[in-house]
Computed example of a mutant assay.
Amino acid sequence: MPSAAVRAKRPVIPGFGLTMGFTLLYLTFIFMIPVGGLLLYTSTMSWEDFWSAISHPQVVASYKLSIGASLIGATINLVFGGLVAWVLVRYHFPGRKFIDALVDLPFALPTAVAGIALVTLYASTGWVGQYLEVHGIRIAYTQLGVIVALTYIGLPFVVRTVQPVLEDLDAEREEASASLGASRLTTLRRVVLPALLPALLTGYALAFARALGEYGSVVFISGNLPYRTEIAPLLIVQKTEQYDYQGAAAIGTVLLLAAFLLLLAINGLQWWTSRRSQ
């Protein structure tokens, strides 16, 4: 008869081997094979061809815009997405469930439709853009428009990542901090933010990775001006249409590595913060 300690370690529902096999099979076909195929195809290029494809001035300009706008959009969502999650969890007000449902709209709305809607709003003759144009502020067909589009599609990632953590955060810890004489700012900085930091970083990384590969909602509002508002995913599409598959693969590899390095850095930062909190 197995001991009580051995029985306690056994899972309630058996089948780890079978479920792990399905998991690995699923990840292999959905993720590993496409990514491995991209890297393998890129490796067939000579170094001179690869460098020529990724270092062209037009391609470099698209990298700067895609990566820079994605970082800015993710940073904006880090702040305001956290605030939206805080309001939805900590306060009860009329229409809260409706606003909570609106957060998921970028998930449900086709990106092309979102791009058309953003142009309708922010063009110089749009509902909002016509008033901004009076003050010399242009959004549509500028780099600012790219940032607006990438912020729009990245907001749900931060909100939905932070919300469960806020719901599980015990309010008694904040009350204890206040009873010990800590100010609201000190309670926020020493009690709330350390608990939310891993979730905030995860939402930031997801928003950045999503924005880096965004295409549909950006091409309409950016104007696609070479060297100015042309994003890297658009160049990939253009090169595939021109049958330059190696050039498209090279650009895609650079974007893949950029997203992977940021996710690796974020995971390392999460590990460091969790070690400090122990």
Rank of each mutant, 00 (worst) to 15 (best):
R7M: 14
T28M: 10
L38W: 06
F16K: 12
L38I: 11
W47A: 11
D49Y: 06
P57Y: 07
F29V: 13
F50K: 02
H56N: 02
F29P: 00
Q58G: 12
Y41Q: 10
L39I: 15
F29D: 01
L40F: 13
M45R: 09
V60F: 04
G21K: 05
L27N: 04
G36K: 09
L27A: 15
S55N: 11
Y26W: 13
A8F: 14
A8Y: 07
I33R: 03
L25Y: 10
W47Y: 07
H56C: 03
I54W: 02
L39V: 15
L27E: 01
V60N: 03
A53L: 03
V12L: 15
F50M: 05
V59S: 01
L40G: 12
I54Q: 03
P14Q: 07
L25E: 07
V35D: 03
Y26K: 01
I13W: 01
L39Y: 12
A5N: 08
H56M: 08
I30E: 09
L39M: 13
R10K: 15
I33L: 15
T44K: 06
V12P: 00
S55L: 13
H56P: 00
G15F: 01
Y41D: 12
D49P: 01
W51F: 14
A8W: 09
T23M: 15
W47D: 06
I13S: 07
I30Y: 14
I33C: 04
S43W: 09
V60Q: 08
T19D: 01
R10L: 15
S46R: 10
P57S: 08
A5R: 13
A8T: 08
V59D: 00
